[in-house]
């Protein structure tokens, strides 16, 4: 076991000193930026272009509720920092607590999103209703899917902590999940700002 780990990692002295896997996740997140960038661009292109008489962001979106869920997601990022900090200091017990908290807050965020989606559908906004519905559900839905993948990843790390050694390489496995989690969090900040904060306040003026 130890021998194989050595074979896997110690022999690889990388040209930059950055571990291959860490570089992989960074470059992957760069690619993800283009993915969300395109979705956000689509949302903006169609902003205020829905047919008159169909639901508008101002009528549908509920900023107070979503502010709470945004806060929840932000807090999960803090938990993630604590989880990584624990594991990099070799404290697996604390790591388990924090990573569970992170996953739980992530799941709570998803719960909010499910609530939000059903509520909007009840109020008459579905993905088919108009351009706003189409772009809103697609963008936030794909973000939600990323959070879901993140929660599965975090829970998997929690499970793995009973089986394998997460503290090796300074907790690199956790570090990778953390980078992904923070990225998803930052994307939400952008989405929240674009769709909710700016979108709702400017909508009446733009739609005229």
């Amino acid at each position: 076991m130890h021998h194989s780990q050595a074979a896997e990692h110690a022999t690889i002295a990388t040209s930059t000193g950055i571990d291959n896997r860490k570089m992989l996740i960074w470059v992957f997140l760069g690619s993800e930026c283009m993915f969300f960038g395109s979705l956000i661009a689509t949302y903006l292109v169609y902003y205020g272009q829905s047919l008159p008489g169909t639901p508008t962001p101002g009528e549908i979106l509920d900023i107070p509720t979503t502010s709470v869920s945004t806060f929840v997601l932000l807090m999960s990022s803090l938990m993630m920092v604590l989880a990584y900090s624990s594991v990099s200091r070799g404290n697996v017990r604390n790591f388990r607590i924090w990573i569970l908290c992170t996953a739980l807050l992530g799941a709570t965020f998803l719960g909010f999103q499910v609530f939000e989606f059903t509520e909007f559908a009840r109020e008459g906004l579905t993905p088919k209703t108009n351009l706003f519905g189409t772009t809103f559900f697609t963008l936030t839905g794909f973000h939600g899917a990323h959070v879901t993948v993140g929660v599965i990843w975090l829970v998997s790390l929690f499970g793995y902590s009973f089986k394998g050694d997460l503290t090796k390489d300074g907790g690199l496995s956790v570090d990778m999940a953390a980078l992904y989690w923070h990225f998803v969090d930052i994307v939400w900040i952008v989405i929240f700002t674009v769709i909710y904060l700016i979108g709702v306040t400017n909508a009446p003026a733009l739609i005229e």
């Binding site: 689509t42 292109v45 169609y46 829905s50 993905p127 088919k128 351009l131 519905g133 189409t134």
Partner: peptide, 16 residues
């Protein structure tokens, strides 16, 4: 799913 991204009838822009 019958969404409207490229549906001109719902105001969508096919040039997108």
């Amino acid at each position: 799913f019958g969404m409207n991204f490229f549906n001109a009838a719902a105001g969508g822009d096919v040039v997108l």
